[in-house]
């Protein structure tokens, strides 16, 4: 564990909680892509199946359980409790165009051709593009609430910090996971345009165009 990874994990946690609280407090999921949230629930589920097979640390186990729990809670709020406020018409990204190629890629390029490992690889690839329906939705409506941009910023920051974590681990531990690194770079790049807008507009009154 290094500082980049710890802050990265906490940033990820902050993003998830910000989104949950935003929906809960406003009793509305307007402007939130349910599809992205379903993809994240799939990401956590397929990645953390190792909860059943291996124990890494109490921290690791707790965070995984919290991430999974929050992901499903978010999906529940969007599609069940506050579904009347869900803006399905603007959430029109075709997720099969992500899930099918990503599934194929996971079968082709992985560290080990085993069930759990392919699911892990699938989750890594899928996470790198899971935010696309959300970014697509914002670009379509041309606007995002400030709180939604904070959510996206924390989510992007988490991945950017993981890049520093991998540089750190390469130098000090000789650790090197090509699949995670390439997917992490792709994921971070997807946020660059957003980061630029977030910083220059200073989180105020949004007319967001991507």
């Amino acid at each position: 564990m290094n500082i980049f990874r710890l802050i990265g994990d906490l940033s990820h946690l902050a993003a998830i909680i910000i989104l949950l609280l935003k929906i809960w407090k406003s009793r509305s999921c307007a402007g939130i892509s349910g599809k992205s949230q379903i993809l994240f629930a799939i990401v956590f589920t397929t990645r953390y199946l190792d909860l059943l097979t291996s124990f890494i640390s109490l921290y690791n186990t707790c965070m995984k359980v919290i991430y999974i729990g929050c992901a499903y809670a978010t999906v529940y709020l969007i599609y069940m409790k506050f579904r009347a406020t869900y803006d399905g018409n603007h959430d029109s990204f075709r997720v099969e165009f992500l899930v099918v190629p990503v599934g194929g890629l996971a079968v082709l390029i992985n560290h080990d051709f085993s069930f759990l490992e392919i699911l892990w690889t699938f989750s890594i690839y899928l996470e790198s593009v899971a935010i696309l329906p959300q970014l697509f939705m914002i670009s379509k409506t041309g606007e995002a609430e400030t709180i939604t941009t904070h959510y996206l910023f924390c989510l992007g920051l988490y991945r950017a910090l993981y890049l520093f974590n991998w540089i750190w681990r390469f130098y000090f531990e000789g650790f090197f996971d090509m699949i995670a690194i390439v997917a992490g770079v792709v994921q971070t790049v997807l946020y660059c345009d957003f980061f630029y807008l977030y910083v220059t507009k200073d989180g105020k009154g949004y007319r967001f165009s991507i």
């Binding site: 994990d9 990645r47 560290h111 080990d112 892990w120 993981y162 974590n165």
Partner: peptide, 10 residues
């Protein structure tokens, strides 16, 4: 591939 790697990150 030399066995399943242990993934210690989140």
């Amino acid at each position: 591939a030399e066995g399943e790697p242990l993934h210690d990150e989140l």
